[in-house]
């Protein structure tokens, strides 16, 4: 489903906060803050996770020179059971809050909802974004952090990072959201939770092609199309799928993936980065800054999410995936 925003809501401020390991990220220099302790000096990983979300939200407000009372909505999601880190951060923020779960696509789905609220006139300022904390996600979805189970070359490293954006009324000096596509849930029967890129690529394909078709656009209309966390192998699969439908190799060069690039070529991270904070921290730091400087004029951000739970794959269910996209421009 494609939404065209008549009022073109703008991203008035954005922030990215990351953990210590994310110093290895190629996007490191764009992050606002990097914390030395991955638990943010709290007792548990989950508390640290909540503190990271809180810190990212506070930076957004500080940048826009506003306070909690000025913000109408806080839209956030993460991957921990029942999204307690977002809930607990919202408790501290005391802003009207809707928790959203689109797995790693929450970075974009939250911005879509914020844009709709803004267009409706219901929101002056809304903070939207997503986060993930490696240890908390790893222990929940896979194994204890110090368990010596091997990971295959297809598996990805959940990042410790948060990315948040302040969505407000249109302002020509800031990047604006002109259209969005809410993705369907796509499932091609993949069952391997250590190969998320392979499970998610069809969802990205579905959303990107639907968006371009409905908007009557081509790849060349964009300076960049960036998926969320397909990883190195998932990106290759997506490119192969697009090539089959007649997209030319030079057009495919416009397609990049935040997860595939996040940790550079470091092989220790296997197929690249993943997690809700992966796309969020890259979109709301690097991409926004590139739009602001005018290097990009029009981008399509398509975040992908694998909608599984630790129980669902043990019960033999396949992995349903989704992808949400926003089209952003800079005048």
């Amino acid at each position: 489903m494609v939404i065209v925003f008549q009022s073109k809501p703008s991203i008035l401020a954005s922030s990215a906060v990351a953990g210590p390991l994310e110093k290895k990220s190629v996007f490191y220099s764009y992050f606002d803050s990097v914390v030395e302790d991955e638990r943010w000096n709290e007792k548990t990983n989950e508390q640290g996770h909540a503190k990271m979300i809180l810190e990212a939200s506070n930076i957004v407000m500080k940048k826009a020179n506003i306070e909690n009372l000025d913000v109408d909505y806080f839209l956030s999601g993460d991957l921990v059971n029942q999204m307690t880190p977002s809930n607990f951060a919202a408790r501290e923020l005391a802003i009207s809050f809707i928790g959203l779960f689109s797995a790693c696509a929450t970075s974009v789905s939250s911005v879509i909802i914020a844009s709709l609220l803004t267009e409706l006139g219901a929101s002056q300022y809304a903070i939207a974004g997503a986060a993930s904390q490696h240890n908390a996600i790893e222990r929940q979805f896979r194994y204890p952090n110090y368990y010596g189970g091997p990971k295959p070359a297809t598996s990805q490293w959940t990042v410790t990072a948060a990315g948040y954006a302040l969505v407000g009324k249109h302002n020509p000096e800031y990047p604006s959201i002109v259209a969005a596509t809410v993705g369907k849930v796509v499932d091609y029967g993949d069952v391997n939770p250590m190969h998320m890129g392979g499970a998610m690529a069809p969802a990205a394909f579905d959303t990107i092609t639907a968006h371009l078709k409905k908007r009557n656009q081509k790849f060349q209309d964009y300076d960049l199309i960036m998926t969320g966390d397909l990883g190195k192998i998932g990106l290759k699969i997506l490119k192969a799928m697009l090539a089959q439908t007649g997209v030319k190799p030079e057009e495919l060069q416009l397609l990049r993936d935040a997860g595939a690039e996040f940790y550079g070529e470091d092989e220790a991270f296997l197929a690249g980065a993943s997690g809700a904070g992966c796309s969020a921290s890259v979109y709301f730091s690097y991409i926004i800054q590139q739009l602001k400087t005018g290097r990009f004029k029009r981008v399509l951000l398509c975040a992908t999410g694998a909608l599984l739970s630790p129980l669902s794959f043990q019960q033999g269910e396949s992995i349903p995936c989704t992808a949400h996209a926003i089209e952003m421009t800079m005048e």
Partner: peptide
């Protein structure tokens, strides 16, 4: 694309064990 067709493509692109 059919699921079967996709899985073949996925297998092709994914590096072997």
């Amino acid at each position: 694309m059919e699921p079967k067709e996709y899985q073949d493509l996925e297998k092709q692109v994914t590096p072997p064990i």
